[in-house]
Design a protein around this nucleic acid. Structure first.
Lengths: 350, 350
DNA sequence: CAGTGGACCGTAAAGGTTTTCACTCCGTCA
DNA sequence: TGACGGAGTGAAAACCTTTACGGTCCACTG
């Protein structure tokens, strides 16, 4: 009860396999035999063996998605966009969880090359020179989404993290805040750590806020680390009126700590998060957050990958637009009516 | 600069391709030529073409993961487990987002069969007889995770949803509640809708709670629908002291509505959710929720799939154990100290 | 009627690997 | 010394498809 092959169809229809192939691929239209062939194929439930086809056409219609962690909401949304575009383009997606370390990325890169995938989509990773060279040596074209690469010739789909952080900070400044804390991510994280701190500091500088009035504590983007960081922040500067967190989980942790200490949000403390994950909508009040269009980014990354495969010229890589979500966690420093409306200009910035 | 093939290695080492194949697969150990071959392979950066290998061995070392929605936290965790087991077993995972409708599942089933995947993992889906027969006709072995299938011979990795709902309800009863509302999922959802209502009702019956005292409203598992359902519930029975929700998002929505109406959790209202997604840990107080070991379920499903491929006898399909998480949203009806400890026995049940 | 063109079709090569089979060579045992 | 066994190797088939090439047949034109 094995599957039918093209040979079975050819036999059943009384023609050669070449004819079957042509008919089923609409190459060389026919009418008399074509119907017979189609009927036979139908009757036998024939489906072409994609492996054999890939082998001969030298195109696997497959991409690999390399992501450090596959299970969080961030990765899920990007994957969703990638999958959607892949579906439309006739591609399949192999997911690879590379974890934190570098070794598993290398392993998967080799595996994908061996599987003859047409391209790779690298997500949430700041590729090193070595990693880039490996990919190159494996003849594996790739694009990056929500990450970075040393080679400026590789397509990158990402927001301008520094500008986004600056915009969020500026929104707090505009609301009147002059003492703002930041809960940052990993101190040496080149994609979600460093740029966001840099943007925060830059915006504070522009606003003339002294370094002492803009303390920074580092977490690991997770909820628990956010609790710790927030407590440290308030120990250092109990008079903070606003906090900018590099992730929503840490922002929610900040709200939890505020609640514990009897500080009301946004009357006593304003909070802005980052990523606008679904969770952000469900806090009380809803969290203001920097939104990345993750699904769209995944979609665009997949499109770029496909264009890369086809050797099409790629459009100039402009950063993706970010925006602040509507929420209720930002208000003027000393009380008064909270902002219920969009906070600050979204500022896509070219 | 195309990739090196086995033929190139054979030439470089001065042997036949058969020898190269044998050496590189450790079949027929050798020492003299073996070293030469390995060196040549190394020097040329040779990696076997997996497609050709799959074609000849009739085994693609690939599974397809069919899931209705790829981006939520639920799917992410299962995927994580599947991916992890796949990595250990040397398999690759192709993800397919089947969406709500049935047509895309059929499309993907055919695609996967055509790609010669060794097995499929079907997630969060209650397979119809027709769908089952399609899979069978395509000669596509499959396992189900967090779903169901009409064929009792197919491995299913899932919790006993009805029992889990009953356990959650019983925990509320044990805490002293006699008027309990339920925010259910889709009224005709065979996997996360019907069984949970059934378990809820059964537990209420056992506790001798009259139908009028256990109203049920339906949502779609999402936050917004939870808001609506909770408001309706409290309109019907303003004197409810506890709510059981079929998803965490809806449970959080219930907490939001309670907050709006000045009801404190857990003093005035106890709440239990379902799924124990990361969000549940971040509410104030932390949400008590029915936890499914999603990652472990994905892992086991992948293992089962691999055993299926190898034709190994499968262990009897016992339901996976569920448990209530620790939280602070359940307490006695009329006030008093909230339960801070695990609520009710986890009750894995056979 | 000869010649030309086109539509249709089959043969065979190609894609890269695994594996069976047969062969060579060498050491060992009777 | 002759036979036997084992280790190592190569030729070739097989997996299933696409496609270049060449051939047949027929209709139509000059």
């Amino acid at each position: 009860m094995s599957r039918a092959t093209i040979k079975d169809v050819a036999e059943a229809a009384g023609v050669s396999i070449a004819t079957v192939s042509r008919v089923l691929n609409d190459r060389g239209g026919a009418s008399a035999t074509a119907r017979t062939v189609r009927e036979a194929a139908e009757r036998l439930g024939y489906a072409p063996n994609a492996l054999a086809r890939m082998l001969i056409t030298q195109r696997s219609m497959t991409v690999g998605l390399l992501q450090p962690m596959v299970s969080d909401s961030f990765a899920g949304q990007v994957l969703d966009g990638v999958e959607d575009a892949a579906y439309e383009l006739g591609y399949s997606v192999i997911v690879c969880s590379t974890g934190a370390g570098s070794s598993r990325l290398e392993h998967y890169a080799r595996l994908l090359a061996s599987r003859q995938v047409d391209a790779a989509v690298v997500m949430s990773t700041a590729l090193t020179q070595t990693q880039h060279e490996l990919l190159r040596a494996l003849a594996l074209p790739y694009v990056v989404v929500a990450g970075s690469t040393p080679d400026p010739g590789v397509p990158v789909v990402a927001i301008d993290g520094q500008q986004a952080a600056a915009d969020a900070t500026t929104a707090l400044v505009t609301a009147g805040h002059r003492r703002i804390g930041m809960i940052a991510g990993g101190a040496d994280d080149p994609v979600a750590g460093i740029p966001r701190v840099r943007g925060f500091v830059a915006a504070c500088d522009t606003a003339g806020i002294a370094p002492d009035d803009r303390p920074v504590e580092h977490g690991d983007f997770g909820y628990d680390s956010g609790l710790v960081a927030m407590r440290r922040l308030l120990e250092r500067r109990p008079d903070l009126t606003a906090v900018f967190a590099a992730s929503d989980e840490m922002a929610v942790a900040a709200m939890t700590v505020a609640d514990e200490q009897g500080r009301r949000v946004p009357e006593d403390l304003s909070v802005i998060g980052f990523d606008a994950i679904p969770l952000a909508r469900m806090t009380r009040p809803p969290l203001v957050s920097v939104a990345q269009p993750l699904r769209a980014m995944g979609y665009r990354a997949m499109q770029a990958a496909e264009q890369l495969v086809r050797g099409e010229p790629l459009p100039a890589a402009a950063p993706v637009a970010h925006a602040l979500t509507v929420g209720g966690t930002v208000g003027p420093p000393s009380g008064g009516p909270p902002f219920g409306d969009p906070v600050g200009p979204p500022s896509p910035r070219s």
